[in-house]
Design a protein around this nucleic acid. Sequence first.
DNA 1: TTAAATTATTGTCCAAATTACAATAATTAA
DNA 2: TTAATTATTGTAATTTGGACAATAATTTAA
Lengths: 231, 231
Amino acid sequence: MYLINFTDFFTSAFSVDCIIFGYSEGKIKALLIKRAIEPYENFWAVPGDLVYPTEDLPQAAERILLELTGLSHIQMHQSQSFGKPNRHPQGRVITIAYFALIRIKDFEIKASSWAEDIKWTAMDEIPELAFDHNFILSETYALLKQKLLNEPVCFDLLPERFTLNEMQQLYEFALETDMDKANFRKKIKYVPMIAHDEKQQNVKHRPAKLFSFNKKEYTNQVEKKDYQFKM
Amino acid sequence: MYLINFTDFFTSAFSVDCIIFGYSEGKIKALLIKRAIEPYENFWAVPGDLVYPTEDLPQAAERILLELTGLSHIQMHQSQSFGKPNRHPQGRVITIAYFALIRIKDFEIKASSWAEDIKWTAMDEIPELAFDHNFILSETYALLKQKLLNEPVCFDLLPERFTLNEMQQLYEFALETDMDKANFRKKIKYVPMIAHDEKQQNVKHRPAKLFSFNKKEYTNQVEKKDYQFKM
DNA sequence: TTAAATTATTGTCCAAATTACAATAATTAA
DNA sequence: TTAATTATTGTAATTTGGACAATAATTTAA
């Protein structure tokens, strides 16, 4: 232990890493960028940026999301902080990871000044990433899986209208386990959902009915404490 | 958005707040200190400190715990980060909260240079705290409650040998709900515990048998994936 | 037009877990 | 020895969960 001045502490920076999860083709995916600048130039990485001195943390995460996707007003979930002294080669930078859940089809990915390339990568096909981003991403994915079990966040990933099978497949991918169709439906029996008349299109078999999440009714029931989402 | 130099980012500090939870007299308690210095002099607060430039985050949390309690080699759990731009009156300081679970009887609380007073406070009797510490503490307590449901961390709070009733009362306090004795025992039937011959002392009724957590057997069963703690 | 194929949806049965409540056992204090 | 208190175990009814079967709706190919 050594004594230093109070002002000597104000020599660190912090960044926000923003993990953007989506769901398509039966897989949960994360948006990765290819870094255009040093350090770790040409490495794939989780999008992130230093936080401005007067900026709030979730605000910084939203800024990153907006730059890459054009999406705003998306709920940000806090993940963990990562602060090993040498995790960044250019100085002491601790990072706070946030994650967002979005519908892939809702927008076009945008280019960015600091990203040479950008792509969706399935969570079972993540390559070697810059910094400690493999660790950050896997810890955050673990948190997402936790949330999927206890909160109705799957509906932020699924399209607005979805089939019950699509919903089941999302859980099967996340939990890495097969589920029985009949039993899955029993399990979600009390989740407030709206059954539409509309059917699946362009499938070469009996089309499934489309459902959507009844968020209003869900909020209602949670307030009255007579419902608790649970998978 | 405005452009600033890379080095201009390195003007922030970060701190670690270390919430120390204990359990006694049927209540979960947190260790609070009375601040001896400005800002918020004489306010009760969660113990915390700025992180040294080369110090890792959990290491800083352990240092705080050691200074106050003399305890070391205690597992630290990461809570959340709190980073509103104006949360600290003297500059941009974001804080990462950690929490530790300890057995109150295992040690004597130590005085500290930056704490004028220090005391255990039950979680249902928390006063107004310095900074945003009320928020930090309640968010972290919510996380602890979550952990109590999914991991056998209650045994870090209970004495090494405890009665099943003490265990039940811990959960009753945390979950704010009464439980049936017989059903509670059924629920914990498969938790690996050692039943001792030793009995409770100095009670004016039939003494209860003492148990302790069989951590070795627990680890074993978790590895073989034939057990998952769940309340 | 019809039959085969495919998938959606619903139902049944059994085992396991949960709940409410009762009964019994062990100990202390008077 | 008895009353009081608490620990511990048991029972029965209900609810939930999992395996599997049956039926319904639709497409495609003959």
